[in-house]
Design a protein around this nucleic acid. Structure first.
Lengths: 220, 220
DNA sequence: GATGAGATACACCATTCGGTGTATTTCTAA
DNA sequence: TTAGAAATACACCGAATGGTGTATCTCATC
């Protein structure tokens, strides 16, 4: 429960190497009554120096394509020393790799420069307080990523029999022939036979390959 | 490459059990010139029946808390038969579980009912065409999820030396003492020594446990 | 009733593995 | 300079593994 309408005006920082974009953003954001102060830098290194002495901002708008350190490295550096500062990426790039890397670096949002100014303003100032501003095209990439990661599970069944599946699980869990035999009250030689059959079906020839393959493609 | 300003007006469907909300949304959306037609249903089952006979819509706005089938099941059902239809969740729930389940079910967006009407309209009609509308608080949950999933990687470094890390990789890839020894031109006995050291550090005592643990927590 | 798949079981053998001990060299840090 | 970590190497032993062959028994399906 916060008090959105009565919150303290924000101190912002913009890191952007193109002067026109930088000044345009500063002007746009500076007009809004929710903003107290806007500082700008043209590269990450300068920002990091300044953070040592000047007051800590509430929010940093970070470009990715910068001379020297990239904005993604910038996110990592800023979040490491000031975890509570919101850092929002503002860039032209919308590839999944850069989006994911930015998020893993600790970014609190990811906006595209193609966003219309009024929506951009609302996203930055409105969304940042309670959530993470994301451009819809960026969000789309994330949803696709999440959907794909959940799918790859049941791809290959191989021709394993129920008994073989049981034993496969035990092998992955580190049991030996004898131990598995004891679990099912069968002879160790039988367990061995089963495992050799599984090896043929999975096309492997050692415990290590077996465990790796079993874990990498689903079961267990 | 689309023609956003000249695109065909959209046919929408709203699935929402509360009459006031349903009619409010219908009114709000119906006013916009980008909308051609709005149909409403109070439960998923009715929608599914209607989809068999009536024209396929462009976009479905789906509540989650519904009598009978939940909206998440509704997403699954609709996307299964009409994969190209955009289905956007509109709900009061903002827990990570429901958000992720909705996305895995195939949802193309996830908006909260607390969204201000003008922004809601813009998200639905503006964002849905080229991206996935997500409320900032929902996006925040997703970012946290992605950050966490990437973190558990480097959590445990164990005290492995560079050489041990090399050999660890080879073992996971199924090589034997001899093969690894050949790769680095060292004696098999040395490789064995290294592996036994790694066993102690990882607290395992067999190839199977070793590979499993190595894969489960990071490296390789 | 025959055929085949699945599960069971035993034998044999070479290789690999797990565990322990000892020892040398090099390099870094105290 | 000295102590310790890292990497190297060899020996020995019992246990586990991989590979192959053979042989029942059951059950379902043809």
């Amino acid at each position: 429960m916060s008090t959105p309408s009565a919150s303290r005006p924000l101190d912002l920082i913009i890191v952007e190497d193109q002067k026109e974009v930088r000044e345009g953003l500063r002007y746009l954001l500076g007009l809004d009554p929710r903003v107290n102060m806007v500082r700008t830098y043209d590269r990450v290194e300068t920002l990091l120096d300044a953070l040592d002495t000047l007051p800590t901002p509430d929010l940093v708008l970070m470009d990715i394509g910068l001379p020297g350190m990239s904005g993604i490295e910038g996110v990592r550096a800023v979040k490491k020393r000031f975890p509570s500062v919101s850092v929002i990426i503002l860039t032209v790039f919308e590839d999944t790799d850069r989006i994911l890397e930015s998020i893993r670096a600790g970014a609190n949002g990811y906006l595209l420069k193609s966003t219309k100014p009024d929506i951009l303003l609302e996203q930055i100032l409105g969304a940042a307080k309670e959530g993470s501003p994301l451009s819809p095209r960026v969000a789309k990439r994330l949803l696709e990523e999440i959907q794909e990661s959940g799918e790859q599970s049941s791809l290959s069944d191989y021709g394993l029999t129920p008994r073989e599946r049981q034993i496969l699980t035990d092998v992955v869990n580190g049991f030996t022939y004898r131990e598995i035999a004891a679990r099912y009250n069968i002879a160790a030689s039988t367990v061995k036979k089963h495992i050799l059959h599984i090896y043929q079906k999975l096309d492997v020839s050692s415990r290590a390959e077996f465990v790796r393959k079993a874990i990498r493609e689903k079961l267990v």
